[in-house]
């Protein structure tokens, strides 16, 4: 788990030397993803920004206590989740907003002509397929693909079993895969029509 190792290294620099360079590096490393994660719950940029800032306030204040955490990454996602849920309860007096109601954005479904041998049309279909995924499935897919979390970490974060995470990932990929198989069939049909 190289990223967790990197986070641990930075945390120990921060704990031992009050290393502000390492603190900033950690911030730059985690900010984009933690903010997106907070945003998915709060649906507000400013609120999400403040939550991440709060998380980093905690990281600084409790810097000497992180040395024995096995997965600091999971720990920070968990604090982000908890702070966000507390915040939304206060703001909207909503109790218990379930992961089904989280707004998850995936921005890694894009076209790189050097690598992908698919058309814009297939890519559009893939995007659509990802958008049409059930919210919890999309959240799991995003956390694993974009944020690089492990199955075990996602399971703990969302209070699910690892088997559920496995199944949700399979559903997400199968739906994406379908876009491409369908297209192959369709292009064959087009060719056949031309021939006849």
């Amino acid at each position: 788990m190289p990223e967790n190792e990197q986070i641990k290294r930075l945390l120990s620099l921060i704990a031992l030397n009050d290393d502000q360079g390492a603190y900033k590096e950690l911030f730059m490393l985690l900010h984009p993803r933690l903010k997106q994660f907070a945003y998915s719950i709060l649906k507000s940029n400013e609120e999400a920004e403040e939550i991440v800032s709060d998380v980093f306030v905690k990281i600084w204040e409790k810097r000497t206590q992180f040395s024995h955490i096995e997965s600091p990454r999971l720990y920070f996602y968990t604090i982000t989740k908890n702070l966000s849920l507390t915040r939304i309860t206060k703001l909207k007096r909503q109790v218990n907003i379930a992961p089904e109601d989280w707004l998850v954005q995936l921005d890694s479904i894009y076209f790189d002509p050097e690598q992908l041998i698919i058309t814009e049309e297939i890519l559009r279909q893939i995007r659509q397929a990802v958008n049409d995924l059930p919210p919890r499935c999309r959240l799991i897919f995003k956390l694993i693909k974009d944020d690089g979390l492990k199955y075990k970490e996602v399971a703990e974060l969302l209070h699910l079993s690892i088997k559920t995470v496995e199944a949700q990932m399979a559903i997400a990929l199968r739906r994406i895969g379908k876009c491409m198989q369908l297209d192959i069939r369709r292009s064959h049909q087009v060719e056949n029509q031309k021939k006849s």
Binding site: Q115, I117, I118, L173, M180
Partner: peptide, 10 residues
């Protein structure tokens, strides 16, 4: 294609 798509980072 899915393997390539997986490599894309946000």
């Amino acid at each position: 294609n899915i393997e390539e798509l997986w490599k894309n980072h946000p």
